[in-house]
């Protein structure tokens, strides 16, 4: 995340040169926003910590190594919906699963739900969107993931095999 530090630094620098007052205002706005959402974020971090203890990455790999494509797809979308993994862990894992012969529709369901559906991030999402809309957004995202997985399965010739 070094790029993020550098980008933020450069933007802050340019902003400070252009207008000191506005830059201070921007930092205050950042502090205020972060402080308003601090509790949900804390809760999210705690939930992720507990989840990673209960279900370590090795167990996820095992759970996704099922040969039945339908069962695999369902497990993958469930695990992907709950888990919160950085890409540099998730995609090598997907690569390993593919080379072990996992169906592409399973990988697709896992990868899309992982990035779009957030059960552990729900406290944060709900603080912004409200409970109802947060649920709708997650359900629609799950639907997108399942449809994409089905088409992926079809295009890889897995769907009717």
């Amino acid at each position: 995340m070094n790029i993020l530090f550098i980008t933020t630094g450069i933007l802050l620098g340019i902003s400070a040169i252009a207008n000191r007052q506005k830059t201070i205002q921007a930092i205050w706005s950042a502090v205020r926003k972060l402080q308003a959402i601090l509790l949900p974020f804390f809760l999210m971090i705690i939930l992720v910590a507990i989840f990673r203890y209960l279900i370590p990455d090795t167990m996820i790999t095992k759970a996704l190594s099922v040969s039945n494509k339908w069962l695999g797809m369902m497990t993958a979308s469930l695990v992907g919906s709950v888990a919160l993994m950085p890409g540099f862990i998730a995609y090598p894992l997907c690569g390993i699963l593919v080379s072990n012969g996992a169906p592409y529709m399973l990988i697709s369901a896992f990868s899309t739900t992982l990035m779009m559906v957030g059960i552990l991030t729900f406290p944060v999402e709900r603080a912004y969107l409200g409970t109802k809309v947060a649920i709708i957004r997650n359900v629609l995202s799950l639907l997108v993931a399942l449809l994409v997985a089905l088409v992926t399965g079809f295009l890889y010739g897995e769907l009717f095999s």
């Binding site: 802050l12 921007a26 926003k33």
Partner: peptide, 9 residues
Amino acid sequence: PCAFIIIGL
């Protein structure tokens, strides 16, 4: 912090 500062800017 970086993300929120960028949003603040």
